[in-house]
């Protein structure tokens, strides 16, 4: 890739990361919050791949595979908890679940 594409790739990753973060902040549904986190993590993965390409270094792709594996583990725990919470409260609205305050 030429340097131009590098900067565009990083720009895309930054935009994706910010989108994910904004989504995490404004969505109240647990599933959408998990989805937003996924977008943030994948943005980091994209940034690693672009950086790896810039330095012609496979480390970036290795990190991406680590991120992929870790995200799967994280989401499986998250969805299991979300399922249990839905059974209990009959809602996935994070404000309704929030009982501990102070």
């Amino acid at each position: 890739m030429t340097p131009d594409y590098m900067e565009q790739g990083m720009l895309l990753a930054i935009v994706l990361f910010c989108l994910g973060f904004v989504g995490l902040m404004i969505r109240r549904n647990v599933i959408f919050m998990l989805l937003s986190i996924e977008i943030m993590l994948n943005a980091a993965g994209l940034a690693f791949i672009v950086s790896g390409a810039r330095w012609a270094n496979a480390d970036g792709q290795v990190m991406f595979i680590f991120i992929l594996a870790m995200t799967a583990a994280e989401v499986s725990v998250g969805l299991a908890l979300a399922l249990k919470i839905f059974q209990k409260y009959k809602t996935l609205d994070s404000d309704a679940i929030n009982r501990m305050k102070g």
């Binding site: 990083m10 990753a13 990361f17 943030m40 993590l41 943005a43 980091a44 993965g45 940034a47 690693f48 672009v50 950086s51 790896g52 810039r54 330095w55 480390d59 970036g60 990190m63 991120i67």
Partner: peptide
């Protein structure tokens, strides 16, 4: 953390 690492790596 990961995005920060990616920026440092870049």
């Amino acid at each position: 953390l990961l995005f920060g690492m990616a920026l440092v790596f870049y």
